[in-house]
Write a protein that binds this DNA or RNA. Structure first.
Length: 106
DNA sequence: AGACTGACGGTCT
DNA sequence: GAGACCGCCAGTC
């Protein structure tokens, strides 16, 4: 099982209506401190389908990580999360205290 | 084989 | 709370 496969496996466990941070996913994938790898892995996901719930991963500030390279999928991410009942404030941030996934590992 | 590329976050000031 | 700094690695050409 490759490093990226472990990351994808963790992301698949995030329940609807909740979010996880890049760092949290890294830790659960047994890659502590390597949040960046999670970003690298998610960039390679086919975002046309939701085999992997890629939209449930946000940064530690409760924001969606925007990038021109994402070609608009970052805005789609917010729409997908709102469809699951997650509310964003006027700064485009969500409340991590409220929506962060508490996995049974913690 | 080496260069380049890419969704980050913990720590320190 | 807000910046600056810096380590991070797999896939592709």
């Amino acid at each position: 099982m490759s490093t990226y496969d472990r990351i994808y496996a963790v992301v698949c466990q995030i329940p609807p209506g909740r979010v996880a941070t890049y760092g949290q996913v890294a830790t659960l994938a047994n890659l502590p401190g390597q949040a960046r790898l999670v970003g690298y892995a998610l960039y390679r996901v086919d975002m046309a389908v939701l085999d992997i719930p890629w939209h449930r991963v946000v940064n530690v500030k409760g924001e969606i990580s925007h990038s021109p390279r994402r070609r608009g999928t970052d805005y789609r991410q917010q729409a997908l999360l709102e469809a699951e009942g997650i509310v964003f404030d006027d700064q485009g941030k969500l409340d991590l205290k409220r929506y962060l996934w508490r996995s049974s590992h913690f």
